[in-house]
């Protein structure tokens, strides 16, 4: 999946499942959309489903530094690079 495809999928998830209104790529997820630690765990589960494999614990822990949608996309790209198959 290239970045544009990823972006479209993630924004759809955030709008449909997390009720984000007009999400911007650099919005602060917590301050602008009320995204909290419970949401982060739920989003990781959705990312696992989207990628088709389970993330390692260390990979999940890296997600805790995510602050924006751009961060989410960077994170997924890094995961994809680490799982070339």
């Amino acid at each position: 999946m290239n970045r544009d495809e990823l972006q479209e999928k993630i924004i759809t998830i955030l709008e449909d499942d997390f009720e984000f209104a007009n999400p911007g790529l650099t919005d602060n997820l917590r301050d602008d959309h009320g995204f909290d630690s419970i949401d982060a765990i739920e989003l990781l589960a959705k990312i696992e489903t989207m990628l088709g494999f389970q993330l390692a614990r260390a990979e999940k822990e890296k997600a805790m530094s995510i602050r924006t949608i751009n961060d989410i996309l960077d994170y997924i790209e890094a995961i994809q690079a680490a799982h070339p198959s």
Binding site: I38, I41, E42, A45, E48, T49, Q54
Partner: peptide
């Protein structure tokens, strides 16, 4: 299916 394990949601306990 091992993948079904993730059907336990993080907030299911709550």
């Amino acid at each position: 299916l091992p993948s079904e394990f993730s059907s336990i949601g993080a907030v299911d306990y709550l």
